[in-house]
Design a binder for these strands. Structure first.
Length: 570
DNA sequence: GCCGTTTTCGGCCCGACTGTTTTCAGTCG
């Protein structure tokens, strides 16, 4: 049972209790506990063993600790089983529909025995829902549209951060024509790997005009709500955009508020309360008087805190760190001195070696590793020893021409099922750097998979373990592997874990990154670019690194090649 | 259900928008 499974059980309880009509504070305590667990560095199952440890975690008291122990022990929770008998779990699907909260879900269940999205759809079509008190025609039309969208998208989907970026770019260009100081806030600004919606802020004295301009954006498919301060629309792409305008004096407060996370905001409001202030999206107030609001820095300062980077605002310890003056100095893009995974036309890349190298040099890097696939990955045109030897010659002659820049002779060698490598040691020995990765036999047991990787990484030529969990966001689960063990060995064995910047991968993810840092592991941030354009993805890997609290020193490719080489085992 | 330098009870973050409920509940972030 992983942390996220246990958190999932608690969230389900919270949802069902809420539909039941339980006290919201009690309901929230389940959500708080779930949040604590899913952002925890250690395995909750390990902590659950020793009594007293669990209740030290924020939001987990005696009763919650007992429930967690039951889940760890039995793999299930009798309280949830009971709730599921009481209420059909398919109600949770209804709850996911926009406009459908716990109250309406409960009413429809009690009054019309609506148990599923399909039931709801029928009842609305038959005009039954509209007859109930509190549900009108407008509601009926809206909910039918929601259900249609729900069917079309197959439930509610989140967008990969790169997909969101592609939608945001033209929208911000458009809005900038009318509104000043456009900023994208929300989970996008915090650099989350996926985003559910897009929050945009701007400064304008004429909010009405700004809103009018916003709803006329050509990509708008429908207006969800429209007010003086806030307007929400759905884009044709199927993502919701919330747009708000503020006055200059409130802009910092608004940015802070709408960047979130929700949990971070709640924690900030508590801090303000303790100091006798009130915090909202317009500023910090002492009574009626606004005492801060213009900038985020000013807001934090008023709370007695240093500026906290958006990527850290998840209420996972950043506020304590800030209070104690122990915030990390997060790694920045300019710290990266080279990219360490890339593919060329020789395997499955789109550009030539020369084109890739020149593009990397154009980014201001000092070095750049070309890591085409090895022969086993034949679908990607993997290279055998002979072709690699030829590529290495090509690199050498290219390096003679590129002054102040070095193309590293490298490869993404496949780790075979038994933990041996897909290439002769003779050729690996000739390389500057060897990147190792799993591409096949993903379904081994956890123990076998872990041993396989460790065996490979014990090889004297292996330096980097690429995309260590093999997940593809929203598509493919992680393979079973004991990452804790991998981290332990990586920390001791001076090899590195990759943070793969491909927005489909982002592997390691933010939670694992922070865990790895705690374990003393050094990491690299690579793009895994398959084209010149792909080199830009470094920003996504960087954001995950920042979400994992990494500093320059934690990341090996912030060093010059000379320093880097010293760290590599041989 | 959690929490505590106002500690074992009584709090628990705050505001915008919508619809139809004419004074506010529900939902969302």
């Amino acid at each position: 049972m992983q942390n996220k499974d246990i958190a999932g059980i608690l969230v389900e309880i919270a949802d069902l209790l809420e539909i039941k009509g339980e006290d919201t504070f009690r309901v929230n305590s389940y959500r708080n506990a779930a949040r604590t667990i899913s952002s925890l560095q250690e395995d909750i199952a390990d902590i659950a063993g020793s009594s007293g440890e669990l209740v030290k975690l924020p939001g987990i008291g005696k009763s919650m600790a007992e429930k967690i122990r039951e889940i760890v022990r039995k793999g299930r929770l009798s309280q949830l089983d009971e709730l599921r008998r009481e209420l059909p779990p398919s109600l949770l699907e209804i709850l996911k529909l926009e406009q459908m909260g716990p109250k309406r879900t409960r009413t429809l269940y009690k009054q019309l025995n609506i148990r599923s999205v399909e039931d709801l759809e029928k009842a609305v079509e038959n005009g039954k829902v509209q007859k109930l008190e509190g549900f009108g025609e407008k509601f009926a039309t809206q909910i039918l549209r929601e259900i249609e969208e729900y069917h079309r998208k197959g439930g509610y989907k989140r967008f990969k951060i790169s997909e969101a970026a592609d939608l945001i770019r033209p929208l911000v260009d458009y809005l900038s024509k009318e509104v000043k100081d456009i900023e994208v806030a929300g989970s996008y600004r915090r650099g989350k790997e996926t985003v559910g919606d897009i929050d945009i802020l701007g400064i304008s004295r004429d909010a009405g005009k700004a809103m009018e301009f916003f709803v006329n954006y050509p990509e708008t498919s429908r207006v969800i709500s429209r007010g003086k301060a806030k307007t929400s629309v759905m884009l044709h792409a199927g993502i919701q955009v919330d747009f708000r305008v503020f006055e200059k004096d409130s802009y910092g407060a608004a940015l802070l508020f709408f960047t979130g996370s929700q949990a971070h905001n709640v924690a900030l409001r508590r801090i303000c309360q303790e100091k006798g202030f009130k915090l909202n999206e317009y500023g910090i107030y002492r009574g009626e008087e606004r005492v801060a609001g213009t900038s985020e820095t000013e807001m934090y300062k008023k709370m007695g805190l240093p500026f906290i980077a958006p990527e850290m605002r998840e209420d996972t310890g950043e506020l304590d760190a800030a209070k104690e003056g122990k915030l990390p100095e997060l790694i920045e893009l300019k710290d990266i001195k080279g990219d360490l995974q890339s593919h060329t036309r020789a395997s499955d890349g789109k550009n030539s070696l020369k084109e890739m190298a020149e593009a990397a040099r154009g980014k201001g890097y000092e070095y750049f590793a070309v890591t085409d696939h090895s022969k086993k990955v034949s679908v990607a045109g993997g290279l055998d020893e002979k072709r690699l030897a030829r590529q290495m010659e090509e690199i050498e002659s290219l390096n003679e021409k590129l002054e102040g820049f070095r193309v590293l002779k490298s490869v993404e060698v496949d780790i075979l099922r038994d933990g041996t490598l897909d290439l002769d040691h003779g050729i690996l020995r000739e390389m500057d750097l060897v990147v190792c990765a799993i591409h096949f036999d993903r379904k081994l047991s956890k123990k076998e998979q872990t041993l396989r990787v460790l065996r490979a990484m014990e090889n004297p030529f292996c330096n980097i373990l690429a995309h260590p969990t093999g997940r593809l966001i929203g598509k493919r689960r992680e393979y079973e592997i004991d990452l804790k063990e991998i981290m332990k060995e990586a920390a001791a064995g001076n090899w590195f874990l990759e943070i793969n910047s491909d927005p489909e991968r982002l592997d390691l993810n933010d939670v694992y990154i922070r865990q790895a840092k705690e374990a003393g592991v050094k990491m690299v941030i690579s793009t895994d670019a398959h084209s010149v354009v792909g080199l830009d993805n470094i920003k996504y890997g960087l954001m995950q690194a920042r979400r994992g609290w990494l500093e320059k020193d934690d990341v090996v490719n912030t060093r010059s090649w000379k320093e880097f080489r010293e760290l590599i085992k041989r």
